[in-house]
């Protein structure tokens, strides 16, 4: 696989609006480079990638676990582990993008007690992989973690909440809620 680049420090997916409602998280924004909309064409359509911090860190399954999982999978699909990366299609119009993440897609069967997903727009340009962090930096309002709160949506016992990180990037926190909560 080709090396991934963030296209220099000035490139990212700048958020315009985030709408967590009606069972979806809808994100609208603009791909920017050096502070301006990035009009340069990409090799393939942008895709939104959610990367789990916790699943990435999870140790590889032991030999026994692998055998048990394989046996389970031979019987039913339900034992399939959620991969550490999830992908969602992005609608783009020039540098502008819109992506919708259904909350139910994050309310996974093997939900962890707490899980954090980091968001990137991924594509390629001239054969080089691109992964642009999704965040909001051009609104002259640093420190959004303390300023902006989004609504939490719960699906199948998993509470899903987009939030700004310390660095004004967008991430999604999923938390398993006990029954009755």
């Amino acid at each position: 696989m080709a090396a991934e680049t963030s296209e220099g420090p000035g490139s990212h997916a700048e958020i315009g609006q985030v709408w967590p409602r009606d069972g979806h998280i809808r994100i609208l924004g603009t791909v920017v480079s050096g502070g301006a909309p990035d009009e340069a064409p990409v090799d393939e359509p942008w895709t939104l990638r959610l990367t789990s911090r916790e699943r990435r860190k999870a140790p590889a399954p032991s030999v026994t676990e692998r055998i048990v999982n394989r046996l389970k999978r031979s019987v039913t699909r339900t034992a399939e582990r959620t991969p550490p990366r999830l992908y969602f299609p992005v609608a783009a119009d020039g540098p502008h993008f819109e992506v919708v993440v259904p909350v139910r897609d994050l309310a996974v069967r093997d939900a962890l007690p707490r899980e954090h997903w980091d968001l990137h727009l991924v594509s390629a340009r001239g054969g080089r992989r691109l992964a642009l962090r999704v965040g909001r930096h051009h609104d002259d309002m640093p420190g959004k973690k303390k300023i902006v709160s989004f609504p939490e949506q719960t699906e199948a016992g998993v509470a899903v909440l987009p939030y700004y990180t310390d660095g004004d990037h967008l991430s999604v926190r999923c938390a398993l809620r006990g029954s009755g909560e």
Binding site: V18, R21, I147, V148, S149, P151
Partner: peptide, 30 residues
């Protein structure tokens, strides 16, 4: 809209912003 300041009503105002779906438009800045 940006509102600067803090105080005892902050939690209630944040709830109002969520209820009105104004989280893209109204910011309690601290």
């Amino acid at each position: 809209l940006r509102i600067h300041g803090d105080g005892p009503e902050e939690a209630r105002l944040r709830k109002l912003i969520l209820a009105e779906h104004l989280y893209n438009h109204v910011f309690l800045m601290g």
